[in-house]
Design a protein around this nucleic acid. Structure first.
Length: 228
DNA sequence: AGCACA
């Protein structure tokens, strides 16, 4: 057993990412792809030699991270299967929120002190005022309706449409997103539709973008992956 | 393979 002994963490560590993707795009795509599991507080990706091809996604809940680790394991993302584990330590955005954040210089100084004066004392420099105020990412529309447990699929299932919705109307909305293929509606079942994309990444992006979109004020769209 | 955030 290799990597599975890392304890659960509300942040996940992703490796084997395609290193050709620019940092900003990568972060946006990860944000879209993973917000199906819960509220995302932060996405971190660096292109330094040590850290390229890796990223961290911090969720507001450990359970979201757990689902993401399981369901997105080996998910083909920019042509490479993602390898996902729990992160080894808490993200700064988390420790900042719970008040345990220690700035990096301070941490370095603390470690130096411990090394220099090994037996003198442990300086309780608890002068870390609640450094909270997390610059949290904008909250995506997310409905914990139990539907988000469905594994990714290139076909989306749309619910709560007004009965007068036509496929042309839906096409207008969904064709904005790359990979769009077709809308399917069933006359005998008003209020629902299926939308097909070329692959699961693209369907995920559209889902994230249009989740909760209101065709009428009473009809926020409920979008989930279709059952296989 | 590689666990950071300034």
């Amino acid at each position: 057993m290799l990597t599975a002994d890392i304890p659960p963490n509300q942040s996940i560590y992703i490796k084997n990412l395609n290193e050709k993707i620019k940092k900003e795009e990568l972060k946006r795509s990860l944000y879209c792809l993973f917000s199906q599991f819960g509220r995302i507080l932060d996405v971190v990706a660096l292109k330094t030699p040590k850290l390229r091809g890796q990223a961290w996604v911090a969720f507001s809940e450990v359970t979201a991270a757990s689902n993401a680790v399981r369901q997105m394991q080996n998910f083909p993302f920019y042509d490479k299967p993602m390898r996902i584990q729990y992160a080894k330590s808490k993200s700064d955005c988390i420790t900042k929120a719970d008040g345990t954040f220690v700035s990096r210089d301070k941490k370095r100084k603390q470690e130096e002190k411990v090394e220099r004066k090994r037996e003198e004392t442990q300086g309780p420099n608890m002068a870390n005022g609640p450094t909270s105020q997390n610059g949290a990412a904008p909250a995506p529309p997310f409905q914990p309706s139990g539907q988000e447990a469905m594994p990714p699929n290139n076909i989306l299932f749309i619910q709560n449409l007004p009965h007068e919705t036509t496929s042309v109307m839906l096409q207008l909305l969904f064709a904005q997103y790359p990979g769009f293929k077709e809308i399917r509606m069933i006359d005998a079942k008003p209020g629902i539709a299926f939308v097909e994309y070329e692959d699961d990444v693209q369907s995920s992006m559209a889902m994230q973008a249009l989740q909760g979109f209101k065709i009428t004020p009473q009809n926020p769209m409920i979008i989930s992956f279709a059952k296989k």
